[in-house]
Computed example of a mutant assay.
Amino acid sequence: MAAMNRKDLGEFLAKQGILVAFAVFMIAFTMANQKFISIDNVFSVVRSSAILGIMAVGVTFVVISGNLDLSVGSMMSFSTIVVLDLHDKVGPALAIPLMFLMTLCLGAFIGFLVGYLRLNSLIVTLGMLSAIHGLTLTYSGGQNMDIADKEGTWFSVFGQGTALGIPVPILMFLAVAAFLGLVLARTPFGRKVYAVGGNGTAATFSGIRRARTVFTCYLISSGCVATAGLIQASRSLGSQNTVGQGLELEVLAAVILGGASLLGGSGTIFKTVIGVLILGFIQNGLLLMGLQFYVQFVVTWIIIILAVWLDIAAKRGKLWSSIA
């Protein structure tokens, strides 16, 4: 009985351990500072997590399909710089769709390489991380971007506006998550994504067009990146050309924390949102405890390692391998 209980506990911790850890963090942070669970702080955390969350929702499709996307950080920098630059040249009404089109083209190119040419997604997106960063610097001439007339533009509504007392970035995050959550869970395309990620060969023999499915997943990911770039640009009406640098690791951490497997075939949008909030609240709690912001990088690294360990443990049904 004791052995069975230990086995059950091991399986539970392997599958739900990160939620237990999150609960412990939440209790500890609340005890350290009562402001942690205040309404204002909760809204602040969710609002600041909206950009990361929208990007993570898109990457969830890619990961479930059995691939990776490490280009989202540099792609977000690109979309932010482009929309800010075009804002003053052609106006926000044209700048936004043009930015989306350009960002989707980048996603389509990656999707073509990974989906149709069957190139390794890690290598392709790692290379595109550098390539898109170089493209951003070339486009901007190495300069940061600012909107000239910050007081007379409606463009700020996406990052600074509110509706019904709720910040617009939160509403956009929830809308994107809800819509794509339904697409993934309730549509034939969503089932194809799971099938391709679970067993690509079997999916192909079942009549599923694997290449088209993977291509579409990267399009969805790039569309989410463009949305995140829009919010980032609108938030401050200006940006450095490296604003998205390093976000790809946080995005991947949030997706894996939410239960999506690096091996593909499993994960949900709802759990990805939970993973995003876990990162957001932990980082906020560290700041409220008086720790410096750079401590977040160490904690994020620890969380990534923990998430990968739990993912592998969940697959084999126990936390520790019996093979040394």
Rank of each mutant, 00 (worst) to 15 (best):
W301I: 12
F297Q: 07
F293Q: 06
L291W: 05
F281K: 02
W320L: 15
A253Y: 09
S266D: 04
W309M: 10
Q292M: 03
N284R: 09
I312M: 13
V255W: 04
L257M: 08
L306N: 07
K318I: 12
L257K: 00
I304P: 01
V255L: 10
G264K: 15
G317V: 08
I282G: 00
L288C: 12
D311S: 12
V255P: 03
I304W: 09
L306I: 13
I312L: 15
G259A: 09
V298Q: 04
W320K: 15
K271S: 12
I256E: 05
K315W: 13
L287N: 07
I303D: 02
L287V: 10
G258I: 10
G290F: 05
G264S: 13
G258S: 09
G264D: 03
L263P: 13
G267K: 02
V299W: 01
L279G: 05
S261C: 13
Q283V: 06
F281C: 07
I304Q: 11
A254S: 14
A254V: 11
Q283N: 08
G290I: 07
V276Q: 00
G290C: 05
T268C: 05
A260G: 13
R316H: 15
V273D: 01
G280I: 04
V273T: 05
V308Q: 12
A307K: 10
G264H: 11
I256C: 12
T300M: 07
V298F: 08
F270D: 06
Q296C: 04
I278Q: 00
L279H: 00
G267Y: 12
